[in-house]
Amino acid sequence: MPHPDQAAFDFLLTRRSYPAQALKAPVPDRAQLHTILTAASRSPDHGKLEPWRFIVLTRDALQSIADNLPAAGTRIGIPQDKIDKPVMTYADAALAVVVVSSPKESDKVPKIEQTYAAGGVCLGLVNAAQASGFGAAWVSGWFSHDRDFIRDQFGLAAHETVAGIVHIGTGGATPPDRPRPDIDAITDWSGL
């Protein structure tokens, strides 16, 4: 007979992401963040390849991103309003973690499965931060897909991509819930 962990299940049923712009200091200290990253890394990982890595962005790195976004956006033709929003977000941010999808060569595990594993780490990171009492938001943005920007700002190799950028901080009031999926509309029960 299963023994449910009702507190964990209630957390999963009610968790909400905070808007990245709402997350402020205080943020986890290095020891707290180490524990949060450890929890996030307990993600399904077929072949035990660890096809992800973390880049912790503190205040100076976040400001550098904000400072370099306008030139990158102009270079690739992003409209000004789509440049201004992330500039403000990163200029005001206190802490973010880049989850890098870093697939490994494997005859056994396709690269797409390794990409999924990195996505699982992103969700694990959001949940671990929130379970630790902090707010979190998993974001990306046009710049996180620009090869030049992610190479120059994050030092990503040619085979690496950004799976997500998770902002972590203190969020204040719990954000309002949003509409959730209609499970019956997206589930085929014919196999039962």
Rank of each mutant, 00 (worst) to 15 (best):
G164F: 09
S43P: 05
G135K: 00
A22R: 14
W138T: 02
Y18W: 15
T14H: 15
L37Y: 11
V100R: 11
A128M: 06
H3D: 14
R75F: 03
Q32W: 09
W189S: 07
L156N: 00
R75M: 05
G155F: 02
H34D: 15
D152L: 08
D177R: 14
G155Q: 10
Y90S: 09
D182Y: 04
T161Y: 07
R30Y: 13
A61L: 13
E105P: 12
A20Y: 03
G73N: 08
A39G: 14
A185C: 04
A117Q: 03
L123I: 12
A39K: 14
I83W: 11
A118E: 07
H46P: 04
A93H: 05
R59M: 09
S190V: 00
A7R: 13
H46T: 04
M1H: 13
R178M: 10
R151C: 02
I150P: 05
G172A: 03
L37S: 09
K48M: 15
G171L: 00
R59W: 08
A157R: 15
H34S: 14
D92C: 06
V99S: 04
G47A: 00
R53V: 08
D29K: 01
P103L: 02
A93T: 07
I112N: 13
A7T: 14
K85Q: 13
I186Q: 07
F149E: 01
K82I: 11
I36N: 02
L62N: 01
S64P: 07
A40M: 09
T161F: 04
K82A: 13
G124P: 02
R16Q: 09
S101P: 08
I183M: 12
R30M: 10
N127V: 00
H159F: 10
Q32F: 08
I112Q: 15
S17F: 06
A94C: 04
D152Y: 05
I186T: 12
I78P: 00
K48N: 13
A94Y: 08
G135H: 01
A72Q: 09
L37N: 11
L123S: 12
T187N: 00
G155E: 07
D146H: 06
I150W: 10
A25S: 10
E50S: 12
